[in-house]
């Protein structure tokens, strides 16, 4: 042990210089060049101000906007968390039922079987920026009514904002809720 202690300390110092100073600073430098918004997190500008971060979801509760998914942290990105509710937890299932009831009350004419599960379940981060296209489409009638516009135009917006699978082959299709709502406001 004694003959190893000084080499251990000195080698640790060398590794600290390489992995804690050179590596992160080099990556920081590259990020300034290749990262969106110089790797400070890409922001979205609209109406003359910053309205959000492109990758982070936000809360939408008004009928005239597409709603985001439920969130365990209220979309405040000072923190991040899922609900961590187990699938059989009775209190949790009651919460889900209340979300379904709320959604149906705000969206007359919609049946529960048209609501995709992500609209009534909280995401892992509490900051999920996306919906599936079906979760957006099921809200079209409400938005068209609230904004007094043609439902077909809202449908077109969803189609235009839908991001397909990676290379057309891998993964689910998604719609970014913030971009979708900005497009709505721009109509």
């Amino acid at each position: 042990m004694k003959q190893h202690i000084f080499p251990a300390i000195l080698l640790t110092l060398c590794c600290l210089v390489l992995f804690n100073i050179i590596y992160p600073l080099a990556m920081y430098g590259v990020g300034l060049v290749i990262g969106p918004n110089h790797a400070r997190g890409e922001t979205v500008e609209a109406k003359g101000r910053t309205v959000g971060y492109a990758l982070l979801g936000q809360s939408f509760t008004e009928d005239r906007y597409f709603w985001s998914r439920p969130s365990a942290v209220g979309y405040n990105a000072a923190g991040s968390a899922g609900s961590n509710k187990g699938p059989s937890n009775p209190d949790y299932l009651k919460t889900v039922q209340e979300r379904i009831d709320t959604f149906l009350a705000h969206n007359p004419g919609i049946r529960a079987s048209q609501i995709p599960s992500e609209l009534v379940t909280a995401s892992g981060s509490g900051l999920d920026p996306d919906l599936s296209p079906q979760a957006a489409r099921v809200q079209v009638a409400r938005i068209a009514r609230a904004r007094n516009i043609d439902a077909a135009r809202v449908e077109q917006l969803i189609a235009a904002q839908t991001k397909g699978p990676l290379l057309g082959m891998f993964g689910p299709s998604t719609v970014n809720v913030l971009h979708l709502n900005l497009a709505l406001d721009a109509l």
Binding site: S113, Q114, S117, E118, V120, T121, S132, Q134, G171, P172
Partner: peptide
């Protein structure tokens, strides 16, 4: 989640509690 399926919800996207749509 079968317990959520029993409430009549569309399960096409699967058990989404704690999951992200982009994954």
């Amino acid at each position: 989640n079968p317990a959520i399926g029993a409430m009549g919800i569309d399960q096409a996207t699967g058990a989404m509690e704690g999951k992200e749509v982009r994954l």
